[in-house]
Design a protein around this nucleic acid. Sequence first.
DNA 1: CCGTATCCAAGTAGATACTG
DNA 2: CAGTATCTACTTGGATACGG
Lengths: 100, 100
Amino acid sequence: MAKPIKNCPIDQTLQVISGKWKAVIIHVLLENPVCRFSELQARLKNCSRRMLALQLKELERDGILTKRVYPTVPATTDYSLTERGKQLKPIIDSMQSWGE
Amino acid sequence: MAKPIKNCPIDQTLQVISGKWKAVIIHVLLENPVCRFSELQARLKNCSRRMLALQLKELERDGILTKRVYPTVPATTDYSLTERGKQLKPIIDSMQSWGE
DNA sequence: CCGTATCCAAGTAGATACTG
DNA sequence: CAGTATCTACTTGGATACGG
């Protein structure tokens, strides 16, 4: 009962979604299952290209989303949630409810 | 449908709980409704006194918890969640489930 | 179009010492 | 006991320029 925490499941989850733009990215992808890089950028008004790329890379690394690259010229990419990513929906939803 | 986000409810919530130790503090207070400063410190093994004080001060400012000070010598204090703070339970709980 | 590399300014957090 | 003050090292993120 007096166990020290941190690195508990709660923090695992927080690490994954608490990047500056991550929760919002997940939210967008829950509503729009497939998004191109430029679509995401358009929706996240103040998020720089650099930041967006960073956040997406981390989300991909953590198994939350999948990136597909099409060998067109110029290159196009799109992003969509994995199953594990979709399971974040209850959390994002309750965060939205609480925030109102 | 193409509205830019950020500063949406999701982010409001994230701001409140995503401090380095905040989610864990809330979790502890959900299980132990009244905690003294030293109790919290004991449970958050790697959290310095300074950090704990900072996080608590922000949580108090955001209306998540209430601080009571008893004019004993030496001073003692305790912390407990507000109603609004208690309403974070579904979020913390689902974060815990997901993290496992 | 979709990034990456570099530089730099600002913010953040630990260590330590002090206070009512 | 429960903090605050200060100093410093580390991290973060914006601006800009370049690359496939």
